[in-house]
Amino acid sequence: MTTLRALWEVSLALCVLAMLALLVLLLARVLSARLFDRTSAVRQRLLPLLLDGDPAELEPLRKGELQAAADLTVEIAEMTRGSEREALLARATALGVTDLLIGRLRSRKAQSRLNAVEALSMFEGSHDYVINALGDRNPDVRLGAALALAQHANAPAPIDIVNKLNESAEENSLLLVSLMVDLAETNSDAVAGLLFEEDLSHRVKVAAMDALSQRGGEYAPLLAYMARGSGNEPELQPRIFRALGRTGHPAGAEAIMEGMASDNWIVRAAAAEAVGKTRLVAAADRLSTLLNDPHYWVRYRASEALLRIGTRGVSVLREATRSEDPVVRSAALKMLAEGRA
């Protein structure tokens, strides 16, 4: 009986506790609404200061105003570029915004640290703080710092950034590709060098390949070389073939042709897609044999590639419309119809 009564009493106590907590939050909400009104007024007052005037005439703001100024600076900076942004950042520095952002790097909230890192990367002279953030305990902040650094000409070497990122846990994000793309803008050879680092994960290398492929045919021979060496790695091959396709360069023709004969349907589909993107006319006959592949994606990519490679491909498709195999016929007919549409 004591237990049963205790259950009742505990339930009552929990109820009261939960209600009290909500009451406190409700009061806090009412207070914060008033604070919001005050902040809005401060923002309105600060906006002209940030948008116009000589930075030398500005004086550092007090803490309450400074927070509003920092938030406002970041919001406007995201919408501006070039000299307009530089002038804005110079005024913000004069108001003391950079000091506040540096302070925010020590915040307990990862969101605050990430925002601070991204904002600081826009200011001249804050480079070291952003580099330090590469060692942050939160992986999102580390990646945010890396992405911010990569947009600058004086970014650290790609291998150093990658090593920092992977120090505590391997970074798996697709944003690695964005990072590599930005790094390749200023130092594409160093990004290409990552492909030859033995200790680096496939994920980083694939991201580097994706980034290099976006530079046109410049690195196509290197990618073709990587493709030839990836024969026994069916998980990597589709990404490499897609990268090769993106270059639009025929350097990888041999590897792509081999890929179309792979046992793995994902590899076959990626190779067929690459044929279409690089317009390998010589692969038209090989593509026609994929029109009766057991897997839809291979048939689709093959027929799409035939359409892309032009006259020769279209004539192969037209021939396939007369095939006795209903699967081949259907693939050719539908793709030709799509092409007409």
Binding site: T3, R5, L7, W8, S11, L14, C15, A18
Partner: peptide, 18 residues
């Protein structure tokens, strides 16, 4: 009865408020 009311009503209320 009180224990039954606790599990069907009171804990339910506290969970929703929480």
């Amino acid at each position: 009865l009180l224990a039954f009311l606790a599990v069907t009503f009171m804990f339910g209320v506290s969970l929703s408020i929480a």
